[in-house]
Design a protein around this nucleic acid. Structure first.
Length: 490
RNA sequence: GCUGCUAUAGUGUAGGGGCCAAUCAUGUCGGCCUUUCACGCCGACGACUGGGGUUCAAAUCCCCAUAGCAGCACCA
């Protein structure tokens, strides 16, 4: 006979995490970054970038820089910084340091001056639309021929506040003959008059492609993993690396991840919150991390789902199914079991003796204990489950016969024999004693399900439980007269 | 329109000339276990976008077609 604990030890089953391709050029260490901008909370799309970088940072024991890209005052709202930090915390990244681009304006200014001195950039006072037309015809604008001194002078005057928004910009000299119009003399600085930046007193702002190159270089970033929407940016950035004679990091671009069934757009979310269509950033219909956290999805499930997706350059559709499967594997061993009765009816059970049912908190771990449910004459049942039946078994209690007098069911005690219930193909269903039932709303993306749950489930606030035969759910709030739970998955 | 990237089962992935009548996960279906339609176990189903070419040999290399996507901002 085998010892029971030996049997248990035999199923480690911890599936090996997927191994992604190795990174090139890791000999001198790995420094990577996750670079969100604080225009709204993080969603599943961000999680891919965050976890893919995190994966390699951990694998190579590297350094992870979280860089908040807040160089557009119009897209920065002060409260978003906190939201962002919460999300990063939730993800559980191996954070090495957090830097804010808005703290580094002087660095960008200084490097812009150097770039102009190197002959790599010029101040352009052309109208944006006019410039675009020239660019498409591969023609230089008049400003392109200014001397370095003239450009430095204009740059100084820009910083001194001599120009208004839209009057002037700084452009990198690239190749006007470049077959891709997107590469030709792109802009690296602009002026924004309003609104003021919440963290820094500035009017001259670096554009993405400039601040990123300067930061990636100065922060020693060795590898960059980002979406393929940045592929053109990478090419543009190479011009700047070239001028400064810097070694660019290794770039990797993954394909587009389309996430169905959920709202991701920050602007749409904001509108929805204002109009009342959504309750907040964590509304169940959203794809924000806050929303999926509220639904009882664990960060590690997201991590695994994202690592499984990997770095493919193909466009893919995000699979909730796979995410739920990962989450179930994490949550099933921990979640205590309770009854939740939707579509409820209360019915007396004729001829039944009083009884105390003992239902395991977790069937695979009896040592966790039981819930005691006191049967005293009547039960609350899911009506749909007894319709058309002549016998059901109330789980952990006893069998009942169901008699139908037209629409009205009448229940009679039918003994405790499990074998009989099996023989009769009676389904084993959840039930509640009226004295231990709490009103419970189960929130799902498809709508609210009203019902009752066990009183004891109200002690599981903020935890994921399994409502037996219904699915895994997170107990979201417990009020005197109502328990609210968020449905995660079956 | 211009530039570029990609194309393996329902979904996601592995495979980068022969070991591939193609891996793993998920899903679906069937069975076992079980006082949950959970977990676990067993089994089945299911794919190389199409057409040319190179080669003794192509999912793998080349070309064309098709499809999808991205960029072409004084956003990030």
């Amino acid at each position: 006979m085998l010892a029971p604990d030996l049997l248990r030890a035999e199923k480690p089953k911890q599936e090996a995490e997927r191994v992604l391709h190795a990174l090139e050029h890791t000999e001198e260490g790995v420094v990577m970054r996750f670079a969100p901008n604080p225009s709204g909370p993080l969603h599943l799309g961000h999680a891919r970038a965050a976890y893919l970088n995190d994966y390699y940072v951990r694998r190579y024991d590297g350094h992870y820089v979280i860089r908040i890209e807040d160089t557009d005052p119009r897209r920065v709202e002060p409260e978003n910084y906190g939201l962002l930090l919460d999300d990063i915390d939730w993800l559980g990244l191996k954070v090495g340091e957090i830097v804010y681009q808005s703290d580094r304006m002087d660095i960008y200014y200084e490097h812009c001056r150097r770039l102009i001195e190197l002959g790599g950039a010029y101040a352009c006072m052309c109208d944006a639309a006019y410039f675009r037309d020239l660019k498409l015809e591969k023609k230089a604008c008049p400003c392109r021929n200014q001397t370095i001194e003239e450009n430095l002078d204009l740059w100084d005057r820009m910083l001194e506040g001599e120009f208004c928004e839209g009057m002037i910009t700084v452009r990198v000299k690239t190749d006007l003959e470049h077959p891709d119009p997107a590469m030709r003399d792109f802009s690296i600085f602009r002026i924004v008059d309003a609104p003021p930046h919440p963290r820094v007193d500035a009017r001259v702002y670096p554009m993405y492609n400039f601040s990123v190159v300067v930061d990636d270089h100065l922060l020693g970033i060795t590898h960059v993993i980002r979406g393929k929407d940045h592929i053109a940016n990478t090419r543009r950035q190479r011009y700047i690396y070239e001028y400064f004679s810097w070694n660019p990091p290794v770039f990797k671009h993954y394909g587009r991840l389309s996430i169905g069934g959920v709202v991701l757009s920050t602007s749409a979310i904001k509108e929805g919150i204002v109009s009342g269509a959504y309750t907040g950033w964590d509304d169940i219909h959203l794809g924000t991390l806050k929303a999926i956290a509220r639904r009882g999805i664990e960060p590690d499930a997201v991590r695994k789902a994202m690592i499984d997706i990997g770095m493919g350059e193909t466009d893919i559709t995000f699979s909730w199914e796979n995410l739920f499967a990962q989450n179930k594997a994490i949550v099933d061993p921990k979640a205590n079991r309770y009854f939740f009765v939707p579509d409820a009816v209360m019915l007396p059970v004729a001829d039944a003796p009083a009884h105390i049912a003992e239902a395991a908190l977790h069937p695979n771990e009896p040592e966790r204990g039981v819930r005691r449910l006191l049967f005293e004459g009547s039960v609350i049942l899911p009506k749909g489950e007894i319709e058309g039946r002549t016998m059901v078994r109330l789980k952990d209690l006893f069998n009942v016969n169901v008699a139908w007098e037209g629409e009205r069911p009448a229940l009679t005690y039918a003994g405790e024999s499990l074998e009989e219930a099996r023989k009769a193909h009676a389904p084993i269903i959840q039930w509640l004693p009226p004295g231990q039932a709490r009103d419970c709303t189960l929130k799902t993306p498809e709508g609210d399900i009203e019902g009752y749950c066990e009183e004891a489930a109200s002690r599981e606030l903020n935890r994921v439980v399994q409502f037996e035969r219904v699915g895994f759910s997170r107990i979201d709030s417990v009020a005197v007269d109502l328990v609210t739970a968020y449905f995660a998955h079956r």
